[in-house]
Simulated assay, not measured.
Amino acid sequence: MNKRIGIITYHRADNFGAMLQCYALQEILRIIGYDAMVIDYRQPFTELIYSPWRLDIVKRGLVAPRLLGGYLFKVLPTLYKRHKLYDRFRKKHLRCTKPVKMAQDMPQDINVYLIGSDQMWSLHPTNDIIEPVYFGDFPKPMGSSIQGYAISSNIQSLHTIGTDYLKEATKRFKRLSFREAVIRDEVEHMTGRHGDVVLDPSLLLNFDEWDKLTTGPIIKKPYLLTYFLSNDTDNPEFRELVRDFGKRNELKVVDMFEIAYSPIDFLNAIKYASVVFAASFHATAFCILFRKTFYAFQSSDGRDIRYINLLNELNIGDRLITTCDINTLRIRKVDYSKTEADLHNLRQNSFNYLKSL
Rank of each mutant, 00 (worst) to 15 (best):
R88T: 15
Y50K: 13
V276R: 08
R82E: 10
K140D: 11
F297T: 03
P44F: 08
L314S: 14
V254T: 11
D164P: 00
L85D: 10
I259W: 08
A269H: 08
F207C: 04
I28F: 11
E188M: 07
D196W: 00
E313S: 15
A36V: 10
K171R: 13
W121R: 01
V276D: 13
Y80M: 05
L314C: 09
Q26V: 04
D56A: 06
V75N: 12
I305R: 12
Y41I: 05
D232I: 03
F245P: 04
L25T: 08
R42C: 14
R4P: 05
Q108M: 09
K333H: 13
I130F: 06
F173R: 01
K167M: 07
K59N: 10
G70Q: 13
A273W: 05
T322D: 14
P222T: 03
T233D: 09
V100C: 00
D211I: 06
I32S: 07
I39Y: 07
D318H: 12
S299M: 00
K84H: 12
Y336T: 03
V242S: 08
T214I: 15
Y295S: 06
S144T: 06
D342W: 12
I129K: 15
R90Y: 05
M37T: 10
T323F: 04
L213G: 01
E131F: 00
A18T: 13
I57H: 00
A269R: 06
I7T: 09
R12W: 12
T293L: 06
P263N: 08
G162I: 01
L314T: 06
I331H: 07
D118H: 00
E237G: 07
I270H: 03
E131Q: 09
E250H: 13
V187K: 00
K247I: 11
F228M: 06
L48M: 10
E237L: 14
E240P: 01
I219Y: 01
K3G: 07
Q21F: 07
Q298S: 14
Y71G: 02
Q298A: 15
A278E: 05
I219M: 04
M1Y: 11
I305W: 04
S337Q: 13
R193S: 00
K292N: 05
T126Y: 11
P217Y: 08
L213P: 02
N235Q: 01
D14K: 02
W210L: 06
P132I: 03
K333A: 14
N268R: 02
R175K: 15
F277C: 06
D244A: 15
G192I: 01
E237N: 12
I218C: 07
Q156M: 04
F238A: 05
L85G: 04
L229E: 00
T293M: 09
N312R: 10
A269T: 09
Y86C: 04
G33C: 06
R243T: 05
K59Y: 10
L241C: 03
D318S: 15
K98D: 13
N15Q: 02
P99S: 03
